[in-house]
């Protein structure tokens, strides 16, 4: 059997591209956009998100046969919230500057539809290792979308890449100016919209 057709691999690769949670399923954009002004915050946010989705899927899948049906959602929320708090505490202890910039958006991972969506739709009915991989895949898909938006916004908005000036000074002397608009909220919506367009056209051609 080819690697690309195992269930294991498909579980991981599906959410990365063909079924990306942000750009195809339109989930979890809430927290996604506000942190995309810089690549650094986007990357950290992506990693935090991946950790939370992966481990909440794993834990819930492990206890999926024991959770009483009637308190399922609240139990899931508690596990997710615990993981989010741990992530937040960790960031505040070791990456203070970034956690200051992310402010409330780490906390908002709790209500991010991707996390609850994956635990509900996948972890509850699949074994732990698949659930974990599914979590990582979805987290990575989310991060990929985030990083792409952040890359565009940081490059066009402040001429930087990971906080380093990469546009040569000659551009500026020749009259080029940073696009301040890219740093404002509306630009994120428009970039996502265009990304969706690009990807949908692409994915459609793939399947044909």
């Amino acid at each position: 059997m080819k690697l690309t057709s195992t269930k294991f691999f498909r579980t991981f690769s599906q959410p990365l591209w063909g079924n990306n949670p942000v750009s195809i399923q339109s989930l979890g954009i809430c927290s996604a956009l506000a942190v995309t002004v810089q690549l650094k915050t986007a990357v950290v946010m992506g990693i935090s998100m991946t950790v939370v989705v992966a481990f909440s899927s794993l834990l819930i899948s492990l206890i999926r046969n024991r959770i009483p049906r009637n308190i399922r959602i609240i139990a899931e929320l508690i596990i997710i919230a615990t993981l989010v708090i741990l992530t937040d505490e960790f960031l505040r202890a070791f990456y203070y500057d970034i956690s200051k910039q992310l402010s409330v958006f780490v906390g908002l991972i709790i209500t991010n539809c991707i996390v609850l969506g994956r635990t509900e739709a996948f972890a509850l009915s699949n074994p732990p290792h698949l659930a974990f991989i599914d979590g990582i895949g979805n987290g990575a898909g989310y991060s990929a979308a985030l990083i792409m938006v952040a890359f565009i916004r940081e490059l066009l908005g402040s001429g930087k890449f990971f906080g380093l000036k990469i546009l040569p000074g000659i551009f500026y002397t020749a009259g080029y100016e940073d696009m301040g608009f890219m740093l404002l909220a509306p630009s994120a919506f428009i970039i996502i919209g265009l990304m969706v367009w690009l990807q949908k056209t692409w994915v459609k051609n793939d399947t044909k």
């Binding site: 339109s26 994120a188 919506f189 428009i190 919209g193 265009l194 969706v196 367009w197 949908k200 056209t201």
Partner: peptide, 16 residues
Amino acid sequence: PKGLEDYGIAMIVTGL
């Protein structure tokens, strides 16, 4: 345009 329908255009309109 196909592909921009629904979700894509919704995001752009939100941006505007």
